[in-house]
Amino acid sequence: MNDLVLSTSELRRDYHMGGDVVHAVRGVSLDIARGEYVAIVGPSGCGKSTMLNLLGGIDRPTSGAVTIDGARVDRMSDRESTRFRLHHLGFVFQRFYLMPALTALENVELPMAEAKVPRGERVARARELLAYVGLGARVEHRPAQLSGGEQQRVAIARALANRPRVLFADEPTGELDAHTGTEMIALLEQVNRDGTTIVVVTHDDVLAQAARRVVHMRDGVVVDDRMATR
């Protein structure tokens, strides 16, 4: 693969729990090309969420390297990795985690405001993104006034606000019903088709099947890595 956007080398993450050491990720090496849609799957406790946190720079590996667009994320200071996440990465989580006090529009504006995007520009882009995820008519609604699927759409719009190189999603359909989950899968496919690299961690077979590449993990290691057959 010539156009790598993300690669890991011998990535390890150990946790100290009481007197024991838990090896959550054990020497994972992975290359992801620009524009790929990768699903990381596996049983509970296999280390896939830990893997996602390491790839996204919100956790620090015990050893090994994480490189995104040529930048060594594992070597960054807290301040550097925070700025890197702001400008280059997007995150979607199972529980949406929107700011309940803000409207949908303000939630999408939040990362752009942090990135010092001028107000007029960020409001326009936030409206554009909310229209893109199908919520153009609900920009002034607060999270409590939105359904679970709508909240997750706002979270995706927020993740796309600063035009990320990679969008990380941790169980994005985990709290949605089957119908809404299917809509979410379609939206993620649309986002990927429009050029954003996606790495998703999921239990959801339907979501995993939508990805073009599926990485199976078990006991902290990659046991299978193959392109999906459709």
């Binding site: 925070t82 700011m99 309940p100 942090e114 600063n162």
Partner: peptide, 16 residues
């Protein structure tokens, strides 16, 4: 706590 760590995760600086 969840909202706060999500802000950190999406790139809001600690001092902010």
């Amino acid at each position: 706590l969840g909202e706060i760590v999500i802000m950190r995760a999406i790139g809001v600086a600690r001092e902010r």
